[in-house]
């Protein structure tokens, strides 16, 4: 082979591999999308062509599944988690980014480390305590434990964004006559706004997808969407068409949000270890 042929061959191989990887990635998602529009009978056959129906989406919101309630719970819990976490995390992140604190490294590492504590460890005492104070199966309880997951990510991610704001600008504002709090309000917050939004969306996705806490702490009133998946079982087995419809309701909003903040996803997950 000449150099040119070799190159063309190599390119073709690469393209082939990329297409294959993409298929492996997309087919399961596509399969669920298709199943969600299939009728009960079509789902139990390996059919690529079928008559699409919206019936499944109607069914999941009806008795006995009432997915609407779970959707509401998920939205409320994830939203509240974010609304509590982001301001608190922003304050801390600003301080960690701009000042030298006593015990700063210890605090930052501890915060980082809590992310790696297995959720089952955290949940055992919370279960006992919530049972005693009546927080089991409440959204409030769920929000509280979700903060454990979300806070470290939020603090580290926002700290990364604030680190990226040039110090010059803040100092200029101080010389221009601002107090520290005015600097934060007039300069830092507007400049960090895209970062805060990104961190907010990121935490929303984490809270939305959270499974173990909700599985253990909720049973009826505060059940969230991922736990709701367990509903679609009948005596004859899983109701795949309904499961798929519910699956779409869970994943589609997250896909949209994730695509919005794609650029920062890596940074968020790795807490800045990879820039």
């Amino acid at each position: 082979m000449t150099g040119k042929q070799k190159k063309a061959f190599w390119n073709a191989v690469q393209t082939g591999l990329i297409v294959m990887a993409t298929l492996i990635m997309l087919v399961p998602i596509a399969w669920i999308f298709m199943a969600a529009f299939k009728s009960h009978v079509d789902v139990y056959q390996l059919k690529l062509f079928f008559r699409p129906t919206l019936e499944n989406f109607a069914l999941v919101f009806r008795e006995p599944y009432n997915l609407g309630e779970k959707l509401w719970n998920s939205t409320l819990v994830a939203l509240a988690t974010v609304v509590i976490a982001i301001p608190i995390a922003t304050m801390a992140a600003y301080s960690f980014s701009r000042f030298r604190l006593r015990g700063e490294t210890v605090m930052l590492v501890t915060i980082l480390a809590t992310q790696f504590v297995p959720a089952v460890v955290i949940i055992l005492p919370f279960f006992v305590m919530f049972r005693d104070v009546g927080l089991l199966d409440t959204r409030l309880g769920l929000i509280l434990v979700n903060l454990a997951i979300v806070m470290p990510f939020a603090i580290w991610m926002i700290k990364g964004f604030i680190d990226g704001i040039p110090l010059d600008t803040e100092e200029a504002a101080m010389v221009d006559g601002s107090s520290r709090l005015q600097v934060i309000r007039n300069i830092v917050l507007p400049m960090a706004a895209p970062g805060l939004l990104t961190a907010g969306i990121f935490c929303f996705i984490l809270a939305w997808n959270e499974f173990l806490f909700a599985l253990i702490l909720t049973s009826k009133d505060a059940v969230t969407l991922p736990i709701g998946l367990a509903l679609f079982k009948a005596e004859e087995g899983d109701l795949w068409n309904l499961l798929s419809a519910a699956g779409i309701i869970i994943m589609l909003p997250m896909f949209i949000l994730a695509l919005m903040i794609r650029k920062f996803f890596v940074q968020g997950m790795t807490m800045g270890a990879v820039r």
Binding site: P166, D168, T169, E170, E171, A172, A173, V175, D176, I187, P190, M191
Partner: peptide, 12 residues
């Protein structure tokens, strides 16, 4: 009043 090396302008 101060003029900074990198100007420190408010980008927003």
């Amino acid at each position: 009043a101060m003029v900074f090396q990198n100007y420190g302008l408010y980008p927003h």
